Computed example of a mutant assay.
Amino acid sequence: MDLDRSFVIREDDLRILNPFDDDKLAALGRAIRLRPDDTLLDLCSGKGELLCTWSRTHGVRGTGVDLSTVFTAAARRRAVELAVADRVRFVHDDAAGYVHPEKVDVAACVGATWIGGGVVGTIDILARALRPGGMLLVGEPYWRREPPDQETVAACHATARDDFDDLPGLIRRVQAHGWDVVEMVLADQDSWDRYAAAHWLTLRRWLDAHPDDDLAEGFRQELTEDPVRHVRYRREYLGWGVFALLRR
């Protein structure tokens, strides 16, 4: 049980594995008014940057769960680096089926709602671990602008326009499922660029070092096509944000 090798290679030089930068991640921690010793569960925790930096800054405790052995190992190293290893732990497991032994103050899935087949299913997974009155954090794409054609839709990692809502539609969907949206921090075009372009440099350096690898041909094509795809489609049409939810 592990994450596909290609994903691990793309994210090799990144600490935050979504279109947030350090400032936006810090802003989210402040926005939701974390308190010392709040408990968090972070599903699909990646390299643990959310949990580790919030533990250092706000004094929270928690558990991160991720399918990748590489990311989980990196998260444990980050916890040691930030001197919070006594307050956070990281588990290699399938987040979709993970059962946390205790109820938590905050349950998060920031950018991996595929674990629940979409936003609504992921909310239901997170809610299982939440104490009464606790908060959910859900990271999700949305349409910044209405995609004009299927080419734009496909370039934004969707199969159909209805795979994503626009921002009002996303909030209405959450509300209709019985949750209030009480905070949000949104990626912007610059943070999208920082996330996307970091992959290009990583891929180029990897290709230079591994020209005969089985993945090289596909990565070469990706490096040729993805910069154009990003600037023409994703940074213009696709938004992304993290939404804080409280049960109605």
Rank of each mutant, 00 (worst) to 15 (best):
G134F: 01
R33M: 07
R204S: 04
W206F: 00
V99L: 15
A27M: 13
W54M: 04
R128M: 09
E151V: 08
P148Y: 05
W114A: 14
F243L: 14
A197D: 09
R128S: 12
G139P: 03
D163Y: 03
P148C: 05
A31F: 02
H210M: 04
H210L: 04
R77H: 07
D94E: 10
A31S: 14
R33I: 00
W54E: 03
H100Y: 03
A27R: 14
T159M: 10
S55H: 10
T224I: 09
A196P: 00
A85F: 02
G64S: 00
D2E: 10
V185H: 03
P168H: 14
V181K: 11
W143A: 04
V182P: 05
M135V: 06
V182Y: 10
V120S: 11
P168E: 13
W206H: 01
H199K: 11
A154S: 13
E140P: 05
D213M: 07
L167V: 12
R204M: 05
L51C: 02
A74I: 00
W206A: 01
D4V: 09
D38T: 06
G239L: 00
T39S: 15
A197V: 11
E217T: 12
G118M: 06
E11V: 02
S191V: 12
P168Q: 13
A96L: 05
V60G: 02
L50W: 12
D38A: 15
V242D: 07
K24I: 07
V91F: 09
D13F: 06
A129D: 09
V91D: 08
L186V: 09
G97S: 15
A85L: 00
T113E: 09
D93S: 15
R229Y: 02
R220S: 14
R131E: 11
D93W: 03
H157F: 15
R144C: 08
D193K: 14
G121T: 09
G29C: 11
P148D: 04
L17S: 09
I16W: 01
G133R: 04
G118Y: 06
V231Q: 07
D42E: 11
R173G: 04
D105H: 13
Q221S: 12
V65I: 07
L40M: 15
P148N: 04
R229P: 01
L25I: 15
F71Y: 12
F164C: 12
V104N: 10
A209N: 11
A160M: 03
L167D: 11
W206M: 01
T53L: 06
I32N: 12
H210E: 11
F71C: 00
W54R: 05
A95C: 12
D93M: 03
S6T: 12
A154F: 09
D149S: 10
P101I: 06
G29F: 07
L51V: 01
I9Y: 05
T57E: 14
A209R: 14
Y237R: 01
A196F: 09
T113Q: 12
R77T: 05
A31C: 11
A160C: 05
D13A: 15
R30A: 14
D42Q: 07
V182R: 15
G239A: 05
D21F: 03
A244E: 01
T224S: 13
R145C: 07
A127H: 08
A108D: 10
R204D: 10
R172H: 15
K47C: 06
F20W: 13
V70E: 13
